[in-house]
């Protein structure tokens, strides 16, 4: 790589990242990668970065350090120039592929494969969710707007069917098979994001439907309506499950993650 081009590689990578970020912000898909509270901050800095990239390309000569004399200008990781060719090639290829993904990969949410890998029932994801002890005495309409996150939080607090009696579950999420009984039970699932997609924690509500795979596939977005009952599946670890009145395939919502 020529000295001039190597010096400007950072500008190109920055411009690629800034353009991709701004496009995601404008199209509303930035929340597939980061929490909404960072969207404005990230978009503003990306715009500033893009302006600086253009200004540097126009106004800076060479690698930006021409005044400082000659020095090895090929790679920051290149402490010993000889004999390190392959690591450099592998590194440059990896960087190129990531840049390609920034420019060309369609925005996507995380899949049920990751949800299954992260123990959908294992972690209390919302410590400020509804309280199971108060739910029994609450009016029926209190739980009308509960999300997957609210119900999963309640299920972690109690497996007493009386707590959930006469409560209608009406939620939207994607299908994740129950690892213990994948033929008859699936979780209607969502990811909860704290900062960015890397920290995504799946939450889910078990749904008992024999042979669900005949009509649904993992990752399908579904609208589930029904009531909790003792889980008829002897193999599943979930004590309670929604026995659905209806399961309907729907479009992925504009905000697929819960925040």
């Amino acid at each position: 790589m020529s000295r001039d081009l190597a010096g400007r590689s950072g500008l190109l990578l920055t411009a690629i990242t800034c353009v991709a970020t701004l496009w995601l912000a404008i199209s509303g898909d930035l929340i597939l990668y980061i929490h909404p509270r960072y969207v404005v901050f990230t978009a503003v800095l990306a715009a500033v970065g893009l302006v600086l990239c253009v200004a540097a390309l126009v106004l800076v000569r060479g690698d930006g350090h021409e005044d400082h004399g000659d020095h090895d200008d090929h790679d920051d990781h290149d402490d010993h120039a000889g004999g390190r060719r392959w690591p450099r090639i592998v590194g440059a290829t990896a960087v190129g592929l990531v840049a390609l993904a920034l420019v060309a990969a369609p925005p996507a949410t995380l899949s049920s494969t990751t949800a299954a890998q992260r123990d959908i029932t294992g972690t209390p994801a919302n410590v400020e969710g509804p309280d199971a002890t108060e739910l029994s005495a609450a009016a029926p309409d209190v739980s009308a707007g509960f999300t997957v996150l609210d119900w999963s939080s309640l299920l972690r607090q109690s497996s007493d069917p009386a707590v959930f009696a006469d409560r209608t579950v009406d939620v939207v999420g994607f299908v994740t098979p129950d690892p213990a009984d994948p033929e008859n039970v699936f979780y209607v699932s969502r990811f909860m994001i704290t900062c960015c997609a890397v920290d995504a924690q799946p939450v889910g509500v078990p749904v008992y439907q024999e042979g669900w795979a005949d009509e649904l596939s993992p990752d399908d977005w579904v609208h589930v309506e029904g009531e909790f009952a003792s889980n008829p599946s002897p193999a599943s670890d979930a004590a309670l499950a929604v026995v659905p009145d209806g399961v309907e395939i729907v479009e992925e919502p504009d905000e697929p993650y819960l925040f």
């Binding site: 995601l24 930035l30 990668y33 980061i34 990230t42 920034l102 995380l110 960015c196």
Partner: peptide
């Protein structure tokens, strides 16, 4: 890809 881009954008 989603994880990688998420770390970069964040």
């Amino acid at each position: 890809i989603t994880f990688t881009l998420s770390v970069i954008i964040e």
